[in-house]
Amino acid sequence: MTDPALVRSSAAAPWGAAADERVRPAGARKRRRQLWSYLFVVPAVLGMGFGFVFPLVTVVRNSFYAGSFYKLSFVGFDNYRFIFGDDVFIRSLTNNFRLLLTVPFMTIVALLVAVILNDGIRGWKVYRSSIFLPYILPAAGIGLTFSVFLQFNGGLNTFLRSVGLSSIAADWLGSQTWAIWSVGGVVVWQQLGFGVVVFLAALLSLPPEVTEAARIDGASWWQLQTKIHVPQIRTAIEFFMVTEAITVLSWVFTYVYVLTLGGPGNSSSVMEFYIWKNGFAQGSVGLANAAAVVVLLIASVLIAIYLRLRARPDAGARL
């Protein structure tokens, strides 16, 4: 998906409070607090207050209210009680967790590709560019293309049948069993290249001496990868997995909206879609807010893990 968090998080240079302290000259801390510093952060603080803090507080508060946007009445925990008894919400929640299974899959495939590219295989830059391209494209345009491509008699199945593989030509978007996995497939299609680029960059930055020494010791290619290379880019792998987990749990609206509209029979709904549908299409604002708080809680756990990773002393060294 083209959400910024992913691009951003990995794009970002290391940060850790500890590293930060090291860089600052000791004298600087004694300097008087300066007025200009406060003025400089005002626009950003206002922007983040307006764009994050205010809506977050409002959504939590309004999740205890029901009604329309302008006529809210306090209902306590009723919205939460309702959504956890609502099959469609439970289905949406489980679907998000099903999509979580794409994360280890992507990680393994991306790692495999990255270590192969890291060997300096001929044409590696072309491979890298092609595999990475989907990642930056708009999910709406991609999703639309797939919604046509994956029709039962669409491009993919027509091709499969023409090469004698009609037995695997499933109804990708029109069956309750397949729809959510098709969404997952499109997510993998788009995100895989990101993993490859992140891992490859980490691998390319490893000091060559270690590899050299291992090879002199007679390590096989496989040992070299599993014992030497992969462990050294552990941090990059963890970051990738956390950011992808956040993606599939809370950034897949576009795919579902364009590919299946949550169907057939709500079978491919996800929490974001549930929020959108209840909040905007059906006017059940209370349910939308309660579901949003659930998303927020789940995301918070992952954000906390993410912050811990960032703050880890070795984060600065390796990532």
């Binding site: 994956l150 029709q151 039962f152 008699n153 669409g154 109804d171 990708w172 978007l173 029109g174 069956s175 057939p264």
Partner: peptide, 8 residues
Amino acid sequence: LNDDIGSV
């Protein structure tokens, strides 16, 4: 019903 009724 047509075989692709679910995806069109």
